[in-house]
């Protein structure tokens, strides 16, 4: 691989990994927040409006 183009290739693949990595991982972080919200609601929340 020629050294002149290496920084551009590394930067492009680095940006790709960063953006797509964030895109893939963000739902996992959100999922843990939702899980806490659901656990909290069903433990302490109002159960009268629980729907099937």
């Amino acid at each position: 691989m020629s050294h002149a183009h290496l920084p551009f290739i590394l930067a492009a693949y680095g940006a790709f990994a960063l953006i797509m990595g964030w895109c893939a991982l963000a739902p996992l972080f959100r999922r843990s927040r939702i899980r806490r919200q659901i656990e909290h609601y069903h433990q302490y929340g109002n159960h009268h409006d629980s729907q099937p």
Binding site: C23, A24, P27, L28, R30, R31, I34, R35, Q37, I38, E39, Y41, H42, G45, D49, S50, Q51, P52
Partner: peptide
Amino acid sequence: ANLLTRARNHLLAQDFRKRWARDALL
């Protein structure tokens, strides 16, 4: 894969008061 993962989260977040969401997650 990413779309379905996000859509599942979105459904849970919208329906967190409903019994199916609690059952599905817990």
